[in-house]
Computed example of a mutant assay.
Amino acid sequence: MATSNDIKNGTVIKIDGQLWSVTEFQHVKPGKGGAFVRTKMKNVVTGKTVDKTYNAGAKIETANVDRRDFQYLYQDGADFVFMDLSDYDQLTVSPVVVGDAKNYMLENQNVQIALHEGEPLYLELPASVVLEITYTEPGLQGDRSTGGTKPATVETGAEIHVPLFLNAGVKVKVDTRTGDYLGRVND
């Protein structure tokens, strides 16, 4: 069992049967009273964030989370199938765990999956991916009522906003965290 002095960014702590990942921490030594650790934690499953304070030296229960590289193979009904790149075992992941990452995943794309006791907790995609626009309306010259952007559907089925001059068949770079258009990609 660890103590609050061992807390660092990325540490996963088990509280009331739930897993929380430390996103920020600060060791505080006030002039009066005992030292403590102030943390900001994110629930690994739900994404909810909370602030929690621990007294210095308080016992905490850490969880062993294994982040491994996988390759996305295909969608099987509602579930997603991935292959572990180290031993080639296949892992079926539910759509709840995959979440919005499905909007940016193409077959044979590498992702990181965090596992706790063999159960997938969440996916980590690369910061950006290259996707092809499959459908978009033609942009009208001089139309600035939408800020110079228009909706476009990419090959995964997700809808993003792109500049007016882009047409179907063009490959674009998309931020996987926000879904924002980052630029055009030339082959």
Rank of each mutant, 00 (worst) to 15 (best):
T53S: 04
N55C: 11
A56Q: 15
A56N: 14
A56L: 14
A56P: 12
G57D: 05
G57W: 05
G57R: 05
A58Q: 08
K59A: 07
K59G: 01
I60T: 04
E61Q: 15
E61D: 06
T62H: 10
T62D: 14
T62S: 14
A63N: 07
A63Y: 08
R67W: 10
R68L: 13
R68V: 13
D69A: 10
F70D: 00
Y72E: 08
Y72M: 13
Y72F: 11
L73S: 12
L73W: 15
L73V: 09
Q75N: 09
D76T: 10
G77V: 13
A78R: 12
A78C: 13
D79R: 05
D79E: 06
D79L: 10
F80T: 05
V81L: 08
V81M: 10
V81E: 09
F82T: 10
D84E: 01
D84Q: 07
L85A: 11
S86R: 10
D87I: 07
D87Y: 09
Q90C: 06
L91E: 01
T92M: 13
V93D: 02
S94K: 12
P95E: 04
P95F: 09
V96L: 11
V96M: 07
V97K: 01
V98K: 00
G99L: 00
G99D: 09
D100H: 11
D100W: 10
A101N: 08
N103R: 07
N103V: 09
M105R: 07
L106R: 13
E107A: 15
N108P: 09
Q109F: 10
Q109T: 08
N110D: 11
N110K: 14
Q112E: 08
Q112M: 08
A114R: 09
A114M: 09
L115Y: 03
L115G: 06
H116C: 00
H116T: 06
E117P: 08
G118S: 03
E119L: 08
Y122A: 01
Y122P: 00
L123F: 04
E124G: 12
E124F: 11
E124P: 08
L125H: 03
P126N: 05
P126Y: 09
A127Q: 13
V129H: 02
V129C: 08
V130T: 06
V130P: 03
V130I: 10
L131R: 05
E132L: 00
E132W: 03
I133C: 14
I133L: 12
T134P: 02
T134K: 04
T134R: 05
Y135R: 14
Y135M: 06
Y135E: 14
T136A: 06
E137T: 12
E137G: 05
P138G: 02
P138H: 09
P138M: 10
L140D: 13
Q141H: 15
G142W: 12
G142L: 15
D143W: 03
R144H: 04
S145Q: 05
S145D: 15
S145W: 04
S145I: 09
S145K: 15
T149M: 05
K150W: 15
P151M: 02
P151H: 03
